[in-house]
């Protein structure tokens, strides 16, 4: 099976702008709302969303980065023996009583989001926590976790993998691909 393109170009642009509009619908003027991108790949999506929100609302929206490595439940338990490398956590604001929107590129088993919620609580008690993802892989959750804002839902099988490429990472264009794991 060749790579299947899930989102790119104009369609991706429309999706990002729709997600931003949905956020605005629920969060009004973003007085008490903060965005948190999940490291390592959710931060690119978070930066895009922040940019769209800032231009639409004509104000700076607070954005932080959260690394979940030390909160993961597969430390010492990974089948591929690939070690977990930590990235930077940078939350330059208080989250106490804030409405937090967690942002990640792909929602798959839900374990990263579970780790992110544990990590997040160490910084204070947010009023609410929501989840925004670009790609939701259906029927593959290990935990009872669902996203509030979804770019695109995709029906996938375990042997497939979603690859997200952003210009910010050095790719020529933004592309979201679905590929077979053994073809990587």
């Amino acid at each position: 099976m060749a790579k299947i393109n899930l989102l790119s170009g104009k369609l991706l642009e429309i999706t990002l702008s729709r997600l931003s509009q949905q956020l605005i619908e629920n969060h009004d003027h973003f007085l008490e709302t903060v965005l948190i991108g999940l490291q390592p790949r959710g931060i690119f999506l978070a930066e895009r969303i922040k940019q769209i929100l800032s231009t639409t609302l004509l104000k700076e929206i607070p954005l932080g980065y959260l690394d979940t490595t030390f909160y993961r439940d597969d430390f010492r338990r990974r089948a591929d023996k690939k070690p977990l490398e930590a990235s930077q956590t940078k939350i330059p604001f208080l989250i106490e009583n804030k409405r937090v929107v967690l942002i990640d590129d792909v929602l798959y088993t839900g374990r990263t989001v579970r780790a992110a919620m544990s990590a997040l609580m160490e910084y204070g008690r947010p009023a609410t926590v929501e989840l925004l993802v670009l790609i939701d892989r259906l029927y593959s959750r290990h935990l009872p976790i669902q996203a509030n804002y979804i770019g695109k839902s995709v029906n996938t099988i375990q042997s497939q993998k979603v690859i997200v490429e952003w210009k910010e990472q050095g790719f020529e264009d933004d592309n979201i691909w679905l590929i077979n794991r053994n073809e990587i």
Binding site: F70, A86, S87, G124
Partner: peptide, 10 residues
């Protein structure tokens, strides 16, 4: 990374 952790509130 751990230096950042030990400068957190928790």
């Amino acid at each position: 990374r751990f230096k950042e952790v030990i400068n957190r509130p928790i």
